[in-house]
Design a protein around this nucleic acid. Structure first.
Lengths: 224, 224
DNA sequence: TCAATGCTTCGATGAAGGACGAACCATGCG
DNA sequence: CGCATGGTTCGTCCTTCATCGAAGCATTGA
Protein backbone atom coordinates (compact mmCIF):
# COMPACT_ATOMS: atom_id res chain seq x y z
CA UNK A 1 0.00 0.00 0.00
CA UNK A 2 1.47 3.23 -1.11
CA UNK A 3 0.75 6.74 -0.05
CA UNK A 4 1.68 10.04 -1.57
CA UNK A 5 0.11 12.28 -4.17
CA UNK A 6 -3.26 10.86 -5.05
CA UNK A 7 -2.59 10.07 -8.66
CA UNK A 8 -5.62 7.82 -9.00
CA UNK A 9 -7.91 10.70 -8.10
CA UNK A 10 -6.47 12.93 -10.82
CA UNK A 11 -6.31 10.19 -13.42
CA UNK A 12 -9.89 9.11 -12.78
CA UNK A 13 -11.00 12.68 -13.38
CA UNK A 14 -9.47 12.46 -16.85
CA UNK A 15 -10.65 8.89 -17.20
CA UNK A 16 -14.26 9.68 -17.96
CA UNK A 17 -14.97 10.12 -21.69
CA UNK A 18 -17.09 13.23 -21.20
CA UNK A 19 -14.49 14.91 -19.02
CA UNK A 20 -11.67 13.83 -21.31
CA UNK A 21 -13.44 15.47 -24.23
CA UNK A 22 -13.87 18.66 -22.25
CA UNK A 23 -10.22 18.77 -21.29
CA UNK A 24 -9.14 18.04 -24.84
CA UNK A 25 -11.34 20.86 -26.07
CA UNK A 26 -9.74 23.21 -23.55
CA UNK A 27 -6.26 22.29 -24.82
CA UNK A 28 -6.90 24.90 -27.49
CA UNK A 29 -6.09 27.41 -24.77
CA UNK A 30 -9.30 29.41 -24.89
CA UNK A 31 -11.78 29.19 -22.04
CA UNK A 32 -15.20 27.81 -22.94
CA UNK A 33 -18.66 28.06 -21.40
CA UNK A 34 -20.52 25.19 -19.79
CA UNK A 35 -22.87 24.87 -22.76
CA UNK A 36 -20.05 24.77 -25.27
CA UNK A 37 -18.30 22.11 -23.23
CA UNK A 38 -21.53 20.10 -22.94
CA UNK A 39 -21.71 20.13 -26.72
CA UNK A 40 -18.06 19.13 -27.10
CA UNK A 41 -18.51 16.28 -24.66
CA UNK A 42 -21.80 15.15 -26.15
CA UNK A 43 -23.73 15.20 -22.89
CA UNK A 44 -26.66 17.14 -21.48
CA UNK A 45 -26.18 20.36 -19.62
CA UNK A 46 -26.83 18.97 -16.15
CA UNK A 47 -24.36 16.19 -16.79
CA UNK A 48 -21.76 18.62 -18.04
CA UNK A 49 -22.29 20.81 -15.02
CA UNK A 50 -21.71 17.90 -12.72
CA UNK A 51 -18.51 16.99 -14.52
CA UNK A 52 -17.29 20.57 -14.45
CA UNK A 53 -17.76 20.87 -10.73
CA UNK A 54 -15.78 17.68 -10.27
CA UNK A 55 -12.96 18.99 -12.42
CA UNK A 56 -13.02 22.24 -10.46
CA UNK A 57 -12.91 20.43 -7.16
CA UNK A 58 -10.00 18.40 -8.48
CA UNK A 59 -8.14 21.60 -9.27
CA UNK A 60 -7.85 20.93 -12.99
CA UNK A 61 -9.89 23.93 -14.10
CA UNK A 62 -10.18 27.63 -13.42
CA UNK A 63 -13.43 29.53 -13.58
CA UNK A 64 -14.07 33.09 -14.74
CA UNK A 65 -17.62 34.36 -14.29
CA UNK A 66 -18.68 37.08 -16.66
CA UNK A 67 -22.30 38.07 -16.37
CA UNK A 68 -24.38 35.00 -16.80
CA UNK A 69 -21.61 33.22 -18.66
CA UNK A 70 -19.11 31.05 -16.86
CA UNK A 71 -15.88 30.45 -18.68
CA UNK A 72 -13.94 27.32 -17.79
CA UNK A 73 -10.26 26.98 -18.68
CA UNK A 74 -7.36 24.68 -17.87
CA UNK A 75 -5.83 25.44 -14.50
CA UNK A 76 -2.32 25.88 -15.89
CA UNK A 77 0.53 24.65 -18.05
CA UNK A 78 1.18 21.72 -15.76
CA UNK A 79 -2.29 20.38 -16.37
CA UNK A 80 -1.88 20.95 -20.10
CA UNK A 81 1.40 19.05 -20.02
CA UNK A 82 -0.28 16.16 -18.26
CA UNK A 83 -3.03 15.95 -20.87
CA UNK A 84 -0.44 16.07 -23.62
CA UNK A 85 1.50 13.23 -21.97
CA UNK A 86 -1.62 11.08 -21.65
CA UNK A 87 -2.53 11.86 -25.25
CA UNK A 88 0.93 10.70 -26.30
CA UNK A 89 0.53 7.34 -24.63
CA UNK A 90 -2.98 6.94 -25.97
CA UNK A 91 -1.78 7.69 -29.49
CA UNK A 92 1.11 5.27 -29.16
CA UNK A 93 -0.85 2.31 -27.83
CA UNK A 94 -4.29 3.27 -29.10
CA UNK A 95 -6.41 1.15 -31.36
CA UNK A 96 -4.90 2.59 -34.53
CA UNK A 97 -7.28 5.10 -35.95
CA UNK A 98 -9.23 3.94 -38.96
CA UNK A 99 -7.58 6.41 -41.26
CA UNK A 100 -6.19 9.82 -40.63
CA UNK A 101 -8.61 12.36 -42.05
CA UNK A 102 -7.47 15.66 -43.48
CA UNK A 103 -7.98 17.43 -40.20
CA UNK A 104 -5.69 14.96 -38.47
CA UNK A 105 -2.95 15.59 -41.01
CA UNK A 106 -3.17 19.30 -40.32
CA UNK A 107 -3.05 18.58 -36.59
CA UNK A 108 0.14 16.63 -36.99
CA UNK A 109 1.80 19.48 -38.84
CA UNK A 110 0.94 22.23 -36.40
CA UNK A 111 -1.55 22.73 -33.61
CA UNK A 112 -2.10 24.72 -30.46
CA UNK A 113 -1.09 23.06 -27.21
CA UNK A 114 -2.63 25.18 -24.48
CA UNK A 115 -0.78 28.40 -25.27
CA UNK A 116 2.11 27.34 -27.49
CA UNK A 117 2.74 25.60 -30.81
CA UNK A 118 2.93 21.82 -31.13
CA UNK A 119 3.32 19.39 -34.02
CA UNK A 120 6.01 18.70 -36.61
CA UNK A 121 6.73 22.35 -37.16
CA UNK A 122 7.16 22.98 -33.45
CA UNK A 123 9.46 20.02 -32.99
CA UNK A 124 11.55 21.06 -35.99
CA UNK A 125 11.77 24.58 -34.60
CA UNK A 126 13.07 23.43 -31.24
CA UNK A 127 15.59 21.13 -32.92
CA UNK A 128 16.88 23.99 -35.01
CA UNK A 129 17.09 26.41 -32.08
CA UNK A 130 19.07 23.85 -30.15
CA UNK A 131 21.34 23.09 -33.11
CA UNK A 132 22.12 26.78 -33.44
CA UNK A 133 22.73 26.91 -29.67
CA UNK A 134 20.17 29.65 -29.23
CA UNK A 135 18.68 27.26 -26.72
CA UNK A 136 20.54 24.65 -24.72
CA UNK A 137 18.99 21.32 -23.95
CA UNK A 138 20.47 18.99 -21.38
CA UNK A 139 18.58 15.91 -20.43
CA UNK A 140 15.01 17.07 -19.91
CA UNK A 141 15.64 20.73 -19.33
CA UNK A 142 15.81 23.58 -21.78
CA UNK A 143 17.68 26.82 -21.04
CA UNK A 144 18.42 30.01 -22.89
CA UNK A 145 21.76 30.13 -24.68
CA UNK A 146 24.07 33.15 -24.52
CA UNK A 147 22.78 34.50 -27.82
CA UNK A 148 19.12 33.93 -27.01
CA UNK A 149 18.26 37.43 -25.82
CA UNK A 150 19.65 39.18 -28.89
CA UNK A 151 18.35 36.52 -31.24
CA UNK A 152 14.78 36.82 -30.07
CA UNK A 153 14.98 40.60 -29.62
CA UNK A 154 15.80 40.81 -33.34
CA UNK A 155 12.44 39.30 -34.16
CA UNK A 156 10.54 41.27 -31.58
CA UNK A 157 10.32 38.82 -28.70
CA UNK A 158 11.41 39.67 -25.20
CA UNK A 159 12.78 36.66 -23.36
CA UNK A 160 12.88 38.40 -20.00
CA UNK A 161 10.18 36.90 -17.87
CA UNK A 162 8.69 38.69 -14.93
CA UNK A 163 6.30 35.86 -14.28
CA UNK A 164 7.10 33.00 -12.00
CA UNK A 165 6.49 30.65 -14.87
CA UNK A 166 9.60 29.28 -16.60
CA UNK A 167 10.70 30.82 -19.89
CA UNK A 168 11.49 27.49 -21.48
CA UNK A 169 9.95 24.15 -20.87
CA UNK A 170 9.91 20.91 -22.81
CA UNK A 171 6.51 19.47 -23.65
CA UNK A 172 6.25 16.00 -25.14
CA UNK A 173 4.57 16.02 -28.54
CA UNK A 174 2.03 13.24 -28.95
CA UNK A 175 2.26 13.03 -32.73
CA UNK A 176 6.03 13.27 -33.18
CA UNK A 177 6.94 11.72 -29.81
CA UNK A 178 9.64 14.27 -29.22
CA UNK A 179 9.70 17.49 -27.28
CA UNK A 180 8.59 20.89 -28.44
CA UNK A 181 8.99 24.24 -26.75
CA UNK A 182 6.55 25.39 -24.07
CA UNK A 183 6.88 28.07 -21.38
CA UNK A 184 6.55 31.83 -21.82
CA UNK A 185 8.88 31.76 -24.81
CA UNK A 186 6.80 29.10 -26.53
CA UNK A 187 3.71 31.16 -25.87
CA UNK A 188 5.35 34.34 -27.19
CA UNK A 189 6.35 32.59 -30.40
CA UNK A 190 2.82 31.37 -31.01
CA UNK A 191 1.56 34.89 -30.36
CA UNK A 192 3.93 36.25 -32.98
CA UNK A 193 2.91 33.62 -35.54
CA UNK A 194 -0.74 34.52 -35.17
CA UNK A 195 -0.11 38.25 -34.88
CA UNK A 196 1.93 38.34 -38.08
CA UNK A 197 -0.83 36.29 -39.69
CA UNK A 198 1.64 33.65 -40.78
CA UNK A 199 -1.00 31.16 -39.77
CA UNK A 200 -4.57 31.05 -38.55
CA UNK A 201 -6.32 28.75 -36.13
CA UNK A 202 -8.77 26.28 -37.56
CA UNK A 203 -12.30 27.18 -36.54
CA UNK A 204 -13.23 23.96 -34.80
CA UNK A 205 -10.07 22.11 -33.96
CA UNK A 206 -6.67 22.79 -32.44
CA UNK A 207 -5.02 22.77 -35.87
CA UNK A 208 -2.91 25.75 -36.90
CA UNK A 209 -2.90 26.32 -40.66
CA UNK A 210 -0.01 28.19 -42.22
CA UNK A 211 -0.52 30.29 -45.34
CA UNK A 212 2.05 29.66 -48.10
CA UNK A 213 3.67 33.04 -47.46
CA UNK A 214 3.46 32.59 -43.71
CA UNK A 215 5.15 29.21 -43.90
CA UNK A 216 8.07 30.77 -45.75
CA UNK A 217 8.39 33.53 -43.18
CA UNK A 218 8.21 31.08 -40.30
CA UNK A 219 10.86 28.87 -41.85
CA UNK A 220 13.10 31.81 -42.63
CA UNK A 221 12.94 33.06 -39.06
CA UNK A 222 12.92 29.82 -37.08
CA UNK A 223 14.19 27.04 -39.30
CA UNK A 224 17.02 28.83 -41.11
CA UNK B 1 -17.79 15.31 -29.81
CA UNK B 2 -14.10 14.92 -30.37
CA UNK B 3 -12.20 12.13 -31.94
CA UNK B 4 -8.56 11.20 -31.69
CA UNK B 5 -6.40 9.20 -29.33
CA UNK B 6 -8.55 7.65 -26.64
CA UNK B 7 -7.19 9.51 -23.68
CA UNK B 8 -10.08 8.56 -21.38
CA UNK B 9 -9.28 4.89 -21.84
CA UNK B 10 -5.68 5.37 -20.76
CA UNK B 11 -6.50 7.75 -17.93
CA UNK B 12 -9.17 5.49 -16.52
CA UNK B 13 -6.64 2.68 -16.39
CA UNK B 14 -4.52 4.84 -14.11
CA UNK B 15 -7.63 6.11 -12.35
CA UNK B 16 -8.21 3.08 -10.20
CA UNK B 17 -6.42 3.17 -6.83
CA UNK B 18 -5.17 -0.39 -7.05
CA UNK B 19 -3.79 0.06 -10.55
CA UNK B 20 -2.32 3.44 -9.65
CA UNK B 21 -0.45 1.83 -6.77
CA UNK B 22 0.88 -0.86 -9.05
CA UNK B 23 2.09 1.65 -11.61
CA UNK B 24 3.68 3.77 -8.90
CA UNK B 25 5.45 0.70 -7.57
CA UNK B 26 6.78 -0.02 -11.04
CA UNK B 27 8.16 3.50 -11.36
CA UNK B 28 11.23 2.19 -9.54
CA UNK B 29 12.17 0.64 -12.85
CA UNK B 30 12.37 -2.97 -11.73
CA UNK B 31 9.79 -5.43 -12.94
CA UNK B 32 7.69 -7.06 -10.22
CA UNK B 33 5.70 -10.25 -9.97
CA UNK B 34 1.94 -10.40 -9.75
CA UNK B 35 2.07 -11.32 -6.06
CA UNK B 36 4.37 -8.44 -5.20
CA UNK B 37 2.11 -6.04 -7.04
CA UNK B 38 -0.94 -7.43 -5.27
CA UNK B 39 0.73 -6.65 -1.96
CA UNK B 40 1.74 -3.18 -3.07
CA UNK B 41 -1.78 -2.45 -4.21
CA UNK B 42 -3.38 -3.97 -1.13
CA UNK B 43 -5.68 -6.30 -3.05
CA UNK B 44 -6.08 -10.04 -3.39
CA UNK B 45 -4.24 -12.00 -6.02
CA UNK B 46 -7.26 -12.55 -8.29
CA UNK B 47 -8.06 -8.85 -8.19
CA UNK B 48 -4.50 -7.93 -8.98
CA UNK B 49 -4.44 -10.39 -11.84
CA UNK B 50 -7.53 -8.81 -13.31
CA UNK B 51 -6.00 -5.35 -13.04
CA UNK B 52 -2.77 -6.51 -14.59
CA UNK B 53 -4.49 -8.00 -17.61
CA UNK B 54 -6.31 -4.70 -18.10
CA UNK B 55 -3.07 -2.76 -17.92
CA UNK B 56 -1.52 -5.19 -20.38
CA UNK B 57 -4.42 -4.85 -22.78
CA UNK B 58 -4.10 -1.11 -22.49
CA UNK B 59 -0.47 -1.35 -23.51
CA UNK B 60 0.90 0.18 -20.32
CA UNK B 61 2.84 -2.88 -19.18
CA UNK B 62 5.23 -5.43 -20.59
CA UNK B 63 5.39 -9.00 -19.43
CA UNK B 64 8.41 -11.24 -19.06
CA UNK B 65 7.63 -14.81 -18.14
CA UNK B 66 10.38 -16.64 -16.32
CA UNK B 67 9.39 -20.11 -15.31
CA UNK B 68 6.33 -19.82 -13.13
CA UNK B 69 7.08 -16.21 -12.31
CA UNK B 70 5.64 -13.46 -14.42
CA UNK B 71 7.45 -10.18 -14.18
CA UNK B 72 5.46 -7.09 -15.03
CA UNK B 73 7.17 -3.81 -15.93
CA UNK B 74 6.26 -0.43 -17.36
CA UNK B 75 5.92 -0.54 -21.13
CA UNK B 76 8.43 2.26 -21.69
CA UNK B 77 9.72 5.71 -20.87
CA UNK B 78 6.70 7.34 -22.42
CA UNK B 79 4.43 5.61 -19.95
CA UNK B 80 6.78 6.51 -17.11
CA UNK B 81 6.72 10.12 -18.27
CA UNK B 82 2.95 10.12 -18.21
CA UNK B 83 2.86 8.80 -14.65
CA UNK B 84 5.37 11.48 -13.68
CA UNK B 85 3.17 14.17 -15.22
CA UNK B 86 0.07 12.92 -13.42
CA UNK B 87 1.98 12.65 -10.16
CA UNK B 88 3.14 16.23 -10.61
CA UNK B 89 -0.38 17.53 -11.00
CA UNK B 90 -1.62 15.43 -8.12
CA UNK B 91 1.14 16.77 -5.87
CA UNK B 92 0.50 20.36 -6.92
CA UNK B 93 -3.23 20.15 -6.57
CA UNK B 94 -3.69 18.03 -3.46
CA UNK B 95 -1.08 18.89 -0.87
CA UNK B 96 -3.46 17.58 1.74
CA UNK B 97 -1.74 14.42 2.83
CA UNK B 98 -3.57 12.27 5.33
CA UNK B 99 -2.30 12.82 8.78
CA UNK B 100 0.08 10.02 9.72
CA UNK B 101 -1.34 8.01 12.58
CA UNK B 102 0.71 5.97 15.05
CA UNK B 103 0.57 2.88 12.91
CA UNK B 104 1.88 4.86 9.97
CA UNK B 105 4.83 6.02 12.03
CA UNK B 106 5.71 2.41 12.81
CA UNK B 107 5.28 1.55 9.17
CA UNK B 108 7.77 4.20 8.21
CA UNK B 109 10.38 2.81 10.57
CA UNK B 110 10.15 -0.79 9.50
CA UNK B 111 7.67 -2.95 7.66
CA UNK B 112 7.46 -6.05 5.57
CA UNK B 113 7.64 -5.59 1.82
CA UNK B 114 6.57 -8.92 0.31
CA UNK B 115 9.21 -11.05 1.99
CA UNK B 116 11.89 -8.57 3.03
CA UNK B 117 12.32 -5.56 5.28
CA UNK B 118 11.40 -2.04 4.18
CA UNK B 119 11.32 1.36 5.87
CA UNK B 120 13.95 3.62 7.40
CA UNK B 121 15.78 0.76 9.05
CA UNK B 122 15.96 -1.17 5.79
CA UNK B 123 17.21 1.81 3.81
CA UNK B 124 19.83 2.56 6.46
CA UNK B 125 20.92 -1.05 6.40
CA UNK B 126 21.42 -1.09 2.64
CA UNK B 127 23.33 2.19 2.79
CA UNK B 128 25.65 0.78 5.41
CA UNK B 129 26.23 -2.49 3.55
CA UNK B 130 27.10 -0.53 0.43
CA UNK B 131 29.37 1.86 2.35
CA UNK B 132 31.27 -1.12 3.74
CA UNK B 133 31.42 -2.61 0.25
CA UNK B 134 29.79 -5.80 1.40
CA UNK B 135 27.35 -5.04 -1.41
CA UNK B 136 28.10 -3.11 -4.58
CA UNK B 137 25.51 -0.82 -6.10
CA UNK B 138 25.88 0.58 -9.56
CA UNK B 139 23.01 2.51 -11.02
CA UNK B 140 19.94 0.41 -10.28
CA UNK B 141 21.61 -2.91 -9.71
CA UNK B 142 22.94 -4.42 -6.54
CA UNK B 143 25.57 -7.15 -6.53
CA UNK B 144 27.46 -9.09 -3.90
CA UNK B 145 30.86 -7.71 -2.97
CA UNK B 146 33.94 -9.92 -2.58
CA UNK B 147 33.54 -10.09 1.19
CA UNK B 148 29.81 -10.77 1.08
CA UNK B 149 29.89 -14.53 1.41
CA UNK B 150 32.11 -14.55 4.49
CA UNK B 151 30.36 -11.54 6.00
CA UNK B 152 26.92 -13.12 5.87
CA UNK B 153 28.19 -16.59 6.71
CA UNK B 154 29.47 -15.12 9.98
CA UNK B 155 25.95 -14.22 10.97
CA UNK B 156 24.43 -17.42 9.74
CA UNK B 157 23.15 -16.44 6.33
CA UNK B 158 24.01 -18.35 3.18
CA UNK B 159 24.16 -16.08 0.16
CA UNK B 160 24.37 -18.96 -2.29
CA UNK B 161 21.09 -19.08 -4.10
CA UNK B 162 19.83 -22.16 -5.85
CA UNK B 163 16.68 -20.41 -6.91
CA UNK B 164 16.44 -18.52 -10.16
CA UNK B 165 15.37 -15.46 -8.21
CA UNK B 166 18.11 -12.83 -7.84
CA UNK B 167 20.05 -12.73 -4.60
CA UNK B 168 19.98 -8.94 -4.45
CA UNK B 169 17.44 -6.57 -5.82
CA UNK B 170 16.70 -2.92 -5.18
CA UNK B 171 13.17 -2.05 -4.09
CA UNK B 172 12.05 1.55 -3.94
CA UNK B 173 10.89 2.54 -0.48
CA UNK B 174 7.73 4.64 -0.51
CA UNK B 175 8.33 6.37 2.79
CA UNK B 176 12.03 7.13 2.39
CA UNK B 177 11.91 7.27 -1.40
CA UNK B 178 15.19 5.46 -1.69
CA UNK B 179 16.02 1.83 -2.32
CA UNK B 180 16.16 -0.94 0.19
CA UNK B 181 17.31 -4.52 -0.23
CA UNK B 182 15.06 -7.18 -1.70
CA UNK B 183 15.83 -10.53 -3.29
CA UNK B 184 16.67 -13.78 -1.54
CA UNK B 185 19.24 -12.03 0.63
CA UNK B 186 16.68 -9.45 1.74
CA UNK B 187 14.30 -12.27 2.52
CA UNK B 188 16.95 -14.18 4.47
CA UNK B 189 17.74 -11.13 6.56
CA UNK B 190 14.10 -10.61 7.43
CA UNK B 191 13.86 -14.27 8.33
CA UNK B 192 16.80 -13.90 10.68
CA UNK B 193 15.35 -10.81 12.33
CA UNK B 194 12.10 -12.60 13.06
CA UNK B 195 13.79 -15.89 13.96
CA UNK B 196 16.10 -14.20 16.49
CA UNK B 197 13.01 -12.40 17.83
CA UNK B 198 14.70 -9.04 17.37
CA UNK B 199 11.34 -7.87 16.13
CA UNK B 200 7.80 -9.10 15.62
CA UNK B 201 5.24 -8.42 12.96
CA UNK B 202 2.28 -6.26 13.88
CA UNK B 203 -0.85 -8.38 13.90
CA UNK B 204 -2.86 -6.43 11.36
CA UNK B 205 -0.50 -4.32 9.36
CA UNK B 206 2.77 -4.70 7.58
CA UNK B 207 4.64 -2.93 10.37
CA UNK B 208 7.62 -4.63 11.97
CA UNK B 209 8.18 -3.68 15.60
CA UNK B 210 11.64 -4.03 17.11
CA UNK B 211 12.14 -4.77 20.78
CA UNK B 212 14.69 -2.52 22.56
CA UNK B 213 17.18 -5.37 22.80
CA UNK B 214 16.45 -6.51 19.28
CA UNK B 215 17.06 -3.05 17.93
CA UNK B 216 20.49 -3.02 19.52
CA UNK B 217 21.34 -6.41 18.08
CA UNK B 218 20.13 -5.40 14.63
CA UNK B 219 22.18 -2.21 14.70
CA UNK B 220 25.26 -4.00 15.94
CA UNK B 221 25.08 -6.56 13.15
CA UNK B 222 23.86 -4.49 10.23
CA UNK B 223 24.50 -0.83 10.98
CA UNK B 224 27.91 -1.08 12.60
C1' DT C 1 3.76 -38.95 -11.18
C1' DC C 2 2.57 -36.30 -7.34
C1' DA C 3 2.73 -32.24 -4.69
C1' DA C 4 3.71 -27.31 -4.19
C1' DT C 5 3.76 -22.84 -5.97
C1' DG C 6 2.48 -18.88 -8.89
C1' DC C 7 -0.97 -17.07 -11.39
C1' DT C 8 -5.37 -16.79 -14.03
C1' DT C 9 -10.31 -17.56 -14.86
C1' DC C 10 -15.09 -17.91 -13.32
C1' DG C 11 -19.12 -16.49 -10.96
C1' DA C 12 -21.56 -13.87 -7.68
C1' DT C 13 -21.99 -9.66 -5.09
C1' DG C 14 -22.11 -5.00 -4.04
C1' DA C 15 -20.99 -0.26 -4.35
C1' DA C 16 -19.79 3.73 -7.05
C1' DG C 17 -20.94 7.02 -10.19
C1' DG C 18 -22.68 8.60 -14.76
C1' DA C 19 -26.90 9.66 -17.07
C1' DC C 20 -31.01 12.75 -17.64
C1' DG C 21 -35.66 15.30 -16.54
C1' DA C 22 -37.60 18.52 -13.63
C1' DA C 23 -37.25 22.00 -10.68
C1' DC C 24 -34.59 25.73 -9.02
C1' DC C 25 -31.23 30.16 -8.78
C1' DA C 26 -29.03 34.05 -11.31
C1' DT C 27 -28.32 37.44 -14.72
C1' DG C 28 -29.72 40.49 -18.52
C1' DC C 29 -33.14 42.81 -21.32
C1' DG C 30 -37.28 45.07 -22.79
C1' DC D 1 -41.47 43.92 -13.33
C1' DG D 2 -41.92 39.70 -16.30
C1' DC D 3 -39.71 36.82 -19.36
C1' DA D 4 -35.89 34.51 -21.63
C1' DT D 5 -31.43 32.48 -21.17
C1' DG D 6 -27.35 30.28 -18.94
C1' DG D 7 -26.22 27.11 -15.10
C1' DT D 8 -26.74 24.40 -11.06
C1' DT D 9 -29.06 21.16 -7.84
C1' DC D 10 -31.95 17.22 -6.84
C1' DG D 11 -33.79 12.65 -7.28
C1' DT D 12 -33.81 8.48 -9.55
C1' DC D 13 -32.53 5.00 -12.73
C1' DC D 14 -29.16 2.03 -14.39
C1' DT D 15 -24.76 0.51 -16.08
C1' DT D 16 -20.20 -0.45 -14.99
C1' DC D 17 -16.64 -2.45 -12.59
C1' DA D 18 -13.87 -3.58 -8.50
C1' DT D 19 -13.72 -7.26 -5.29
C1' DC D 20 -13.03 -11.92 -3.51
C1' DG D 21 -13.60 -17.21 -2.92
C1' DA D 22 -13.21 -21.26 -5.30
C1' DA D 23 -11.63 -23.73 -8.86
C1' DG D 24 -8.55 -24.38 -12.80
C1' DC D 25 -4.07 -24.20 -15.41
C1' DA D 26 0.97 -24.19 -15.77
C1' DT D 27 5.57 -24.80 -14.23
C1' DT D 28 8.96 -26.66 -11.14
C1' DG D 29 10.98 -29.92 -7.90
C1' DA D 30 10.98 -34.25 -5.68
Amino acid sequence: MREGPDIARIASLVGDPARANMLTALMGGTALTASELALEAGVSLPTASSHLSKLMEGGLLTLASQGRHRYYGLAGPQVAGMIEAITGVAAAVGPQRVRPGPRDAAMRVARVCYDHLAGEQAVAMLDRLVARQVLLRDDKEIRLGPSAASHFAAIGIDVESKARRPVCRACLDWSVRRSHLAGTLGAAILDKILLEKWARRDKDSRAVIFSPMGKQSFERVFLA
